[in-house]
Design a protein around this nucleic acid. Sequence first.
DNA 1: CAATTGCTCCGAATGAGATTCCTTTCTTCA
DNA 2: TGAAGAAAGGAATCTCATTCGGAGCAATTG
Lengths: 184, 184
Amino acid sequence: MPNHENTETVRDKAQEARPLDAFDRRILGELAVDAGLSYAELGHRAGLSAPAVHERVKRLRATGRIRGTVAVLDGPTTGKPFLAFVHVDSTGWGKTQELLALSELPEVEEIHSVAGDTCMLLKVRCASSRALEGLLARLYALPSVKATRSYVVLSTFLERTPQAGITSALEEAPLVAPPGDVSG
Amino acid sequence: MPNHENTETVRDKAQEARPLDAFDRRILGELAVDAGLSYAELGHRAGLSAPAVHERVKRLRATGRIRGTVAVLDGPTTGKPFLAFVHVDSTGWGKTQELLALSELPEVEEIHSVAGDTCMLLKVRCASSRALEGLLARLYALPSVKATRSYVVLSTFLERTPQAGITSALEEAPLVAPPGDVSG
DNA sequence: CAATTGCTCCGAATGAGATTCCTTTCTTCA
DNA sequence: TGAAGAAAGGAATCTCATTCGGAGCAATTG
């Protein structure tokens, strides 16, 4: 009699808990920079055949590692040259629902809740300084919004989506010895 | 006698100063959400034929409105669950070259210079809190870096690339009457 | 006012590439 | 040692991107 539990475990592992081997990471790295590559070219760079990379990409999409494929628009030349980060101090934890409604505005690109001396952090891109003012007006119109601090971007030197690479060197050589790590 | 200046103006306008008509904006809007659409489907949504949208997309790419097509990776499931915004106070204006070298790290996603009580703003995504610490260590290793303030993201509610839509309502109804706009 | 020029659209044809199928190989488990 | 599952590669198919030619429209010129 076959072992069902074992089978299911194997299936689950294949579906979601796979730890991203070198092929996967290479594929992700290339696609995060240019999703217009052909599967043949992608396979050439990764050292696989076209059907093989196709299968892997399909799985990476299915498991959510690849959230989607998008065209990256240029803010200034598409009519929105004003970029700003807005820190929002709000009262009443959980009243963030109001802020989330701002997702409907195409000007709002990111909404995060952060730890630090502020509560929420927004990234917004507007057509004019007046539009930015209007956006701040909408923010202040929310009852829970106590204060905001805006950081208007003067120059953007780098702006990209999440990359696949991981710099292992960053995890080495801690600044201070961890507890119990007594040297000498 | 033909007007050469006029001719050149027309040509320049066609090449770069075209003001993005409704078709273009519709196409950009769709592609910014899903670049995997077929030209036939895209043409159907925009009210054009496949060759027509193909021509427009080609022009939007050539003129830089579309900067590229990328696969959007999911940070947590691709091994980088730690997201943070780092404000950097640096001395010596123009010493930002050192900071730009950080572009080589795949953990660094954005580098902006901003107006406000800080100089530079970084968006970084790391594999661990230790890696984030290592990144800050690299920052402090730069001679021009005076201080940093980090905002670690607890939850991300919205995160997307620049959208094509423009909310015209944001530009209306100014909070205060502009100079000279005397009412009554 | 008429004609020409340039631009952009559409429909059809062609070619490239995505997708599928099938076989082989390697690993894993009984 | 044998069996089973996973994954890769080669070949075939089929969708779709891309190109070509012709028509409509606007602006410009004679």
